[in-house]
Design a protein around this nucleic acid. Structure first.
Length: 268
DNA sequence: TCCCAGGATTCAT
DNA sequence: ATGAATCATGGG
């Protein structure tokens, strides 16, 4: 186990921020999370966070994953002091981080997210992991399932995916998995692309539109200018940013501002 | 029973 | 280039 003191880091808010659906609250400040083929448990009380893993795993994997090298105070202080709404959102969302999650996992996750609610998104993802992921055990003996690989989902029929409760999104996932498995679109190349090129490439995938592409760019590729506009953000824009969100001012940090606003709108 | 949920696609004008 | 209908499913 490794213990660190972190500022502007909240497992609770990260869990509720609607970007990672494989993080669970175990109660009493304890959390679990599955990322890649890794399983991790954590505990947080105020600023003190325990990561139940080796120091090497922490340094080599989780620091980058949770974006721990970034000073989020810079983002928080960048808000226009006259923008009362944004400052309130930032205060409420203090502790949210933009994670660096797996690209394939984010593609599938946000295909599922469309016209869906967060509780059910979680359930759908849990189901496909249980059905088509790899069953593993942590060093402590906790059973968990990895996110199903491209090859695994590319061989599943649309009907079988439908049986997971995915609804009409089953087709999107089946087609997209085949598109990527065939090599028609390369995830490795997307990792190396600029924000705009990556987004353009992602838009070629079946079922990926403007909003989903932005989510993938932000939560997997860490393009901090990505700004997903969903029903919540749209509504906030109509009320508080009738002249549009000040994109120029928040260049390089639009994504985190979006997350603060999304979280604030969702839980206030 | 109706309405909605982190939308995208298809088809109509 | 815009606008409406359609798409599954579960929960309120």
């Amino acid at each position: 186990m490794i213990t660190v003191e972190l500022e502007h880091f909240s497992l609770d808010k990260i869990c509720d921020s609607g970007q990672c659906f494989r993080m669970k609250k175990l109660g009493d400040g304890h959390f679990s999370m599955v990322a890649g083929d890794q399983y991790l448990e954590m505990h947080q009380k105020n600023g003190i966070v325990d990561f139940y893993c080796s120091q090497e795993e922490f340094i080599c994997y989780w620091v980058r994953y949770f974006d721990l090298d970034t000073d989020y105070e810079v983002y928080m202080n960048a808000a226009n002091p006259r923008d009362k709404y944004l400052n309130a959102a930032i205060e409420a969302g203090d502790g949210i981080r933009i994670l660096r999650q797996d690209l394939w996992e984010m593609i599938v996750t946000f295909l599922i997210s469309q016209q869906n609610n967060i509780k059910r998104i979680r359930k759908c993802i849990e189901t496909i992991c249980r059905m088509y992921g790899e069953r593993k055990f942590s060093t402590e003996g906790v059973e968990y399932y990895t996110f199903p690989a491209v090859e695994a989902l590319s061989q599943v029929t649309e009907a079988d995916l439908r049986a997971c409760g995915l609804g009409y999104r089953a087709k999107y996932i089946a087609v997209t998995a085949r598109t990527i498995a065939s090599g028609e679109i390369s995830l490795e190349r997307i990792y190396d692309m600029s924000y705009h090129r990556a987004k353009k490439e992602l838009l070629k995938l079946c079922g990926v539109g403007e909003k989903v592409a932005e989510c993938i760019c932000l939560f997997a590729l860490h393009h901090m200018d990505a700004f997903p506009v969903d029903t919540h953000i749209r509504q906030v824009m109509d009320v508080h940013y009738k002249r549009g969100f000040p994109n120029r001012r928040y260049k390089g940090m639009r994504g985190i501002m979006q997350q603060y606003i999304f979280y604030y709108d969702l839980y206030s």
